[in-house]
């Protein structure tokens, strides 16, 4: 099955991302292998097809930005990676690998602990305090040790640079924080379950410029340890924070390359038109 896919890939437009990665000198095989791969991925909402034969590698410890006009399938692609696409009644064909293993063979509950997600609108749990929100994933999965939970809450709030701002309001509702703080709280909540990959669906589009800047700094910090895939409408943002950029259009992957190349010398005409603002 895997061989057949590899073969069909060769006939298609093989993403350049792999070559680029292989050119990185001194990298070991394990470090060079992509963290996640989509192979001939198709996705549907009922009978409407949203993704067509997308093949894309997600390099480890890098930031991959996904850009494209509304309705191009970028969110669908992102939500396929942690099987949230199925939660809204969607279906998937083709395969997605996480460290070489097909994610469709895994229990989505366990998969999502490895592949975390941050949403467009900050969504801290309304009935939980700031501290409870951070450790919600651990607590609801059975961790009881209060001291350990408090330690993890503090650790993760520090990682998202929120600790100093909220250390005196840990017992207030999570929803009492400002929008930007809420989003960093949600990122801390995602980090607390110790994922390997973090998916971000326009994480800063509902925030003001200063909060956006903080989130971007955070992403830059996080990529040392995590693999990040970020969907964004903001091309400047993609250019600022990502190592690689994938351009989607009408449910198809048009082009993926190093971010600098996509924004200066894209191979495809459609990509150029989009990044220069001729359409979209």
């Amino acid at each position: 099955m895997y061989d057949i896919m590899q073969q069909s890939l060769k006939e298609n437009d093989i993403p350049r991302i792999q070559e680029t990665l292989e050119s990185v000198s001194g990298a070991t095989d394990a470090a060079r292998a992509p963290r996640m791969e989509a192979l001939g991925l198709n996705a549907w909402y009922g009978k409407t097809q949203a993704l067509f034969n997308v093949t894309l590698s997600i390099p480890r410890n890098k930031v991959l930005a996904i850009i494209g006009p509304s309705g191009c399938g970028k969110s669908t692609f992102l939500r396929s990676l942690n099987r949230m696409h199925e939660e809204v009644g969607g279906s998937i064909g083709g395969s997605i690998l996480l460290d070489g293993e097909d994610i469709m063979d895994r229990d989505p509950v366990f998969l999502r602990r490895k592949v975390g997600m941050v949403f467009q609108k900050p969504n801290p749990f309304p009935t939980m305090t700031v501290a409870q929100n951070v450790v919600a994933g651990l607590k609801l999965n059975g961790m009881r040790d209060r001291k350990e939970l408090a330690r993890i809450a503090e650790e993760n709030l520090k990682r998202v640079a929120l600790w100093d701002e909220v250390k005196d309001v840990l017992h207030k509702p999570g929803s009492s924080l400002s929008g930007g703080q809420q989003q960093r709280l949600c990122i801390a909540r995602t980090l607390a379950v110790e994922p390997e990959v973090i998916l971000m669906d326009e994480p800063a589009s509902a925030l003001d410029p200063i909060s956006t800047m903080k989130i971007e700094e955070l992403i830059d910090e996080l990529k040392k340890k995590y693999t990040i895939v970020i969907v964004t409408h903001n091309m400047q943002q993609a250019a600022r924070i990502s190592d690689f950029t994938a351009f989607f259009y009408m449910g198809k992957l048009i082009e993926v390359d190093k971010t600098a190349k996509i924004f200066t010398k894209p191979t495809h005409r459609q990509t150029e038109d989009y990044v220069t603002g001729s359409f979209g």
Binding site: P108, N141, R189
Partner: peptide
């Protein structure tokens, strides 16, 4: 209850029934 809370719960790897019960 906005579906975003349900999605947030599920995306954390919390099983459906626990998301319903505790979120």
């Amino acid at each position: 209850v906005p579906s975003s809370f349900r999605e947030a719960g599920l995306a954390l790897g919390i099983p459906r029934w626990k998301t319903m019960m505790f979120v």
